[in-house]
Design a protein around this nucleic acid. Structure first.
Length: 379
RNA sequence: GCGUCGGUGGCAGAGCGGUCAAAUGCAUCGCGCUGUAGACGCGACGGACUUUGUCCUACGGGGGUUCGAAUCCCUCCCGGCGCA
């Protein structure tokens, strides 16, 4: 049911052109995957996401377990039926929440930094609202404080009920502030968890991706890729941070992907600003997800062919041009910057919807361009 | 006309003798967001400068009281409400 076909390998880089086939259809790669954490790409209906050019989404185990709960989703026919998305779907395992609700929250930072960090998280350190044990992670909801224990068994059990086409093994996304000793301990624990995920899986109609970690330590990345790559996963995720320098993203991916079996698809977790696309493809990434298009859209940041546009600025109130003159999306064909600027300033939901739609379309178009360039031997 | 309440920064709205260039919210400006807790977070927001400080101009206008007033008094102007 699940397969990955490589249509072309670049001669210039590790980039490849491919097709992932799932029980819910195919997707051409490299591809950008919008994030639909709680079974929605925020502000957009499933059909709109589809219209904007998306062929696969990634939902989240932790968030869908907390609300509405996997039983509800399962009864609705899995996420596909629940959200009426008749195309491929992935679910993230909850491994990112180990970071985002843990050290990420403690230090008020994301997993990608702009400069070399001071590695203050040493082996044995625990985040304040999350407790990491050998069996899994005790979470405490930042919303209402409700507890949740998620380990490899729990994550797989939930993901099998949610029913995505591709599920991820449970990992710990480590903080960029972790020192090497912490990173090694975390990595070894993650490796054990991933083996458990393979052992407890019951469904054969879902692909399971193992996740490579190791932070910015090349030898740990290689070690992780060797171990995870040798396990019978249908594909691989590459998680964590890749260094503050954009170039190191391509380098680290390259290091990992030289080790991972070439015939299986690789998903780069949580990376994908427009300027990252070519690095990801050149590093051998096939799919990648990022909250950027929707996250920024709601804050009034629009991605265009000439860079970011902060559409809430007063100066756009009288601008009759489309968001992006080079964009073919319905929003750009229909509405002016002036209108969208007004909606955003008035806090009208439609404003966020229009910017989200455009950004998703823009990201998809950029991914299509990457595919085009590989096909034309340009990348 | 009489009575009464009120006029504070772009807006709304605290303050009601010193610790007030004036709380708070919104707006504005700047910055930050990369497997989404977050339609969010941080900073600035009268002017000028030698900017953890100094000076100037400010709480409807004018005039007083006081060492000191956005805060008290008088008067004028404007607005809400009530009564004629």
């Amino acid at each position: 049911m699940f397969s990955f076909k490589i249509l072309k390998r670049s001669k210039l880089s590790r980039a490849r052109l491919g097709v992932i086939s799932t029980p819910h259809g195919e997707i051409e790669t490299p591809a950008f995957i919008p994030v639909a954490t709680r079974a929605t790409v925020r502000t957009l209906e499933s059909r709109e996401v589809r219209d904007a050019g998306s062929r696969m989404l990634i939902c989240n185990t932790y968030h869908l377990h907390m609300m509405p709960g996997e039983q509800i989703v399962q009864k609705a026919g899995g996420i596909h039926g629940f959200m009426q998305w008749d195309a491929p779907l992935m679910t993230d395992s909850g491994g990112f929440q180990v970071f985002s609700l843990g050290f990420g929250s403690d230090h008020g930072m994301g997993k990608i930094l702009k400069e070399e960090p001071e590695r203050t998280i040493v082996q044995g350190t625990q985040p304040s609202s999350v407790k990491i044990t050998d069996d899994g992670v005790h979470f405490r909801s930042p919303v209402d404080g409700s507890p949740l224990f998620l380990g490899p068994k729990e994550s797989v059990r939930i993901q099998e009920k949610l029913g995505a086409d591709i599920i991820f093994a449970f990992d710990e996304c480590p903080s960029p502030l972790a020192d090497e000793a912490y990173m090694r301990t975390s990595l070894e624990r993650t490796h054990r968890w991933e083996t458990t995920c393979l052992n407890v899986r019951k469904r054969s109609d879902q692909a399971m991706y193992g996740i490579v970690q190791g932070g910015t330590f090349p030898h740990l990345r290689i070690e992780s890729a060797n171990i995870i790559g040798a396990l019978p996963f249908e594909g691989f995720g590459v998680g964590g941070e890749f260094g503050y320098d954009k170039r190191s993203l391509r380098r680290m991916l390259g290091i990992v992907n030289d080790v991972l079996p070439e015939s299986k698809p690789r998903h780069v977790l949580g990376v994908g600003h427009p300027e990252d696309f070519s690095y990801i493809a050149e590093g051998g990434g096939d799919t990648f997800d990022c909250i950027a298009p929707t996250h920024y859209a709601r804050r009034g940041v629009v991605f265009t062919s000439t860079g970011r546009l902060e559409i809430k600025k007063r100066r756009y109130l009288t601008d009759q041009k489309p968001l992006d003159h080079a964009c073919a999306c319905d929003v750009c064909k229909t509405y002016s910057r002036s209108y969208i600027c007004h909606l955003m300033r008035a806090h009208e939901l439609t404003g966020m919807k229009l910017t989200s739609y455009h950004n998703i379309h823009f990201f998809n178009a950029r991914a299509a361009l990457i595919r085009h360039r590989i096909a034309n031997d340009e990348l």
